[in-house]
Measured scan of single mutants.
Amino acid sequence: MIINNLKLIREKKKISQSELAALLEVSRQTINGIEKNKYNASLQLALKIAYYLNTPLEDIFQWQ
């Protein structure tokens, strides 16, 4: 199981879903879906999320 901390980290950094989506060149709905565990981010997208949030990938998506 993967624990998804994207919403928590994004909100801590005061970045909206729309802002993050624009940086990543995806839709806001994609970010929303990832945060609600409706969609799994591809490895490429997960790495981009970590880069733009300046946060280690394993802090955003944790295996349990």
Rank of each mutant, 00 (worst) to 15 (best):
residue 1 M to A: 09
residue 1 M to L: 14
residue 1 M to R: 08
residue 2 I to P: 06
residue 2 I to G: 05
residue 3 I to G: 10
residue 3 I to R: 11
residue 3 I to L: 13
residue 4 N to P: 04
residue 4 N to R: 02
residue 4 N to E: 02
residue 4 N to V: 06
residue 4 N to K: 03
residue 5 N to V: 04
residue 6 L to R: 01
residue 6 L to Y: 01
residue 7 K to L: 08
residue 7 K to C: 09
residue 7 K to P: 03
residue 7 K to V: 06
residue 8 L to D: 14
residue 8 L to P: 09
residue 8 L to Q: 15
residue 9 I to D: 02
residue 9 I to Y: 10
residue 9 I to C: 08
residue 9 I to V: 11
residue 10 R to Y: 04
residue 10 R to K: 02
residue 10 R to F: 06
residue 10 R to C: 09
residue 10 R to V: 04
residue 10 R to T: 03
residue 11 E to K: 12
residue 11 E to T: 10
residue 11 E to L: 10
residue 11 E to W: 05
residue 12 K to E: 13
residue 12 K to R: 12
residue 12 K to D: 08
residue 12 K to A: 14
residue 12 K to M: 14
residue 13 K to L: 13
residue 13 K to R: 11
residue 14 K to H: 14
residue 14 K to Y: 05
residue 14 K to M: 10
residue 14 K to D: 09
residue 15 I to P: 01
residue 15 I to T: 04
residue 16 S to R: 07
residue 16 S to K: 09
residue 16 S to A: 06
residue 16 S to V: 04
residue 17 Q to C: 04
residue 17 Q to T: 08
residue 17 Q to H: 03
residue 18 S to L: 10
residue 18 S to H: 11
residue 18 S to V: 11
residue 18 S to N: 11
residue 18 S to Y: 11
residue 18 S to R: 14
residue 19 E to F: 05
residue 19 E to N: 10
residue 19 E to K: 14
residue 19 E to Y: 08
residue 19 E to I: 05
residue 19 E to G: 09
residue 20 L to F: 06
residue 20 L to T: 00
residue 20 L to I: 03
residue 21 A to K: 02
residue 21 A to S: 06
residue 22 A to R: 13
residue 22 A to P: 00
residue 22 A to T: 12
residue 22 A to Y: 08
residue 22 A to V: 10
residue 23 L to I: 10
residue 23 L to K: 12
residue 23 L to M: 14
residue 23 L to G: 11
residue 23 L to P: 00
residue 23 L to V: 13
residue 23 L to R: 10
residue 23 L to W: 14
residue 24 L to I: 09
residue 24 L to A: 10
residue 24 L to P: 00
residue 24 L to R: 01
residue 24 L to Y: 01
residue 25 E to M: 12
residue 25 E to Q: 15
residue 25 E to K: 15
residue 25 E to G: 15
residue 25 E to V: 07
residue 26 V to A: 02
residue 26 V to K: 00
residue 26 V to Y: 03
residue 27 S to F: 02
residue 28 R to N: 08
residue 28 R to F: 10
residue 29 Q to K: 14
residue 29 Q to E: 15
residue 29 Q to N: 13
residue 29 Q to T: 12
residue 29 Q to P: 06
residue 29 Q to V: 11
residue 30 T to W: 08
residue 30 T to L: 15
residue 30 T to K: 08
residue 30 T to A: 07
residue 30 T to M: 11
residue 30 T to F: 13
residue 31 I to E: 01
residue 31 I to S: 00
residue 31 I to N: 00
residue 31 I to R: 01
residue 31 I to W: 03
residue 31 I to Y: 05
residue 31 I to D: 01
residue 32 N to Y: 12
residue 32 N to D: 15
residue 32 N to A: 15
residue 32 N to V: 15
residue 32 N to G: 08
residue 32 N to R: 15
residue 33 G to F: 11
residue 33 G to H: 12
residue 34 I to R: 02
residue 34 I to H: 02
residue 34 I to K: 00
residue 35 E to F: 03
residue 35 E to Q: 04
residue 35 E to C: 03
residue 35 E to K: 02
residue 35 E to W: 01
residue 36 K to F: 05
residue 36 K to G: 09
residue 36 K to N: 15
residue 36 K to E: 15
residue 36 K to L: 14
residue 37 N to F: 08
residue 37 N to Y: 07
residue 37 N to E: 05
residue 37 N to T: 04
residue 37 N to I: 02
residue 38 K to A: 11
residue 38 K to H: 12
residue 38 K to E: 15
residue 39 Y to I: 15
residue 39 Y to A: 10
residue 40 N to P: 14
residue 40 N to K: 14
residue 41 A to K: 01
residue 41 A to L: 15
residue 41 A to D: 01
residue 41 A to G: 05
residue 42 S to H: 07
residue 42 S to E: 06
residue 42 S to M: 02
residue 42 S to L: 03
residue 42 S to N: 09
residue 42 S to Y: 04
residue 43 L to R: 13
residue 43 L to A: 09
residue 43 L to I: 12
residue 44 Q to L: 09
residue 44 Q to V: 11
residue 44 Q to D: 14
residue 44 Q to E: 15
residue 44 Q to Y: 11
residue 44 Q to I: 10
residue 44 Q to R: 11
residue 44 Q to S: 13
residue 45 L to D: 02
residue 45 L to S: 01
residue 45 L to R: 00
residue 45 L to Y: 01
residue 46 A to Q: 11
residue 47 L to E: 14
residue 47 L to D: 05
residue 47 L to P: 00
residue 47 L to I: 13
residue 47 L to Y: 11
residue 48 K to R: 11
residue 49 I to T: 02
residue 49 I to D: 00
residue 49 I to A: 04
residue 49 I to P: 00
residue 49 I to Y: 00
residue 50 A to L: 03
residue 50 A to N: 02
residue 50 A to R: 02
residue 51 Y to H: 13
residue 51 Y to I: 09
residue 53 L to G: 01
residue 53 L to E: 01
residue 53 L to T: 01
residue 54 N to G: 10
residue 54 N to C: 12
residue 54 N to I: 04
residue 54 N to T: 08
residue 54 N to M: 08
residue 55 T to W: 04
residue 56 P to N: 08
residue 56 P to R: 09
residue 56 P to Q: 05
residue 57 L to Q: 02
residue 57 L to E: 02
residue 57 L to I: 12
residue 57 L to H: 03
residue 58 E to R: 12
residue 58 E to P: 09
residue 58 E to M: 09
residue 59 D to V: 08
residue 59 D to P: 03
residue 59 D to R: 08
residue 60 I to F: 03
residue 60 I to G: 03
residue 60 I to Y: 01
residue 60 I to N: 02
residue 61 F to N: 01
residue 61 F to R: 01
residue 61 F to V: 02
residue 61 F to M: 02
residue 62 Q to A: 10
residue 62 Q to L: 08
residue 62 Q to F: 09
residue 62 Q to M: 10
residue 62 Q to T: 10
residue 63 W to P: 06
residue 63 W to S: 07
residue 63 W to E: 04
residue 63 W to V: 07
residue 63 W to D: 05
residue 63 W to L: 08
residue 63 W to A: 05
residue 64 Q to K: 11
residue 64 Q to Y: 09
residue 64 Q to R: 10
residue 64 Q to G: 13
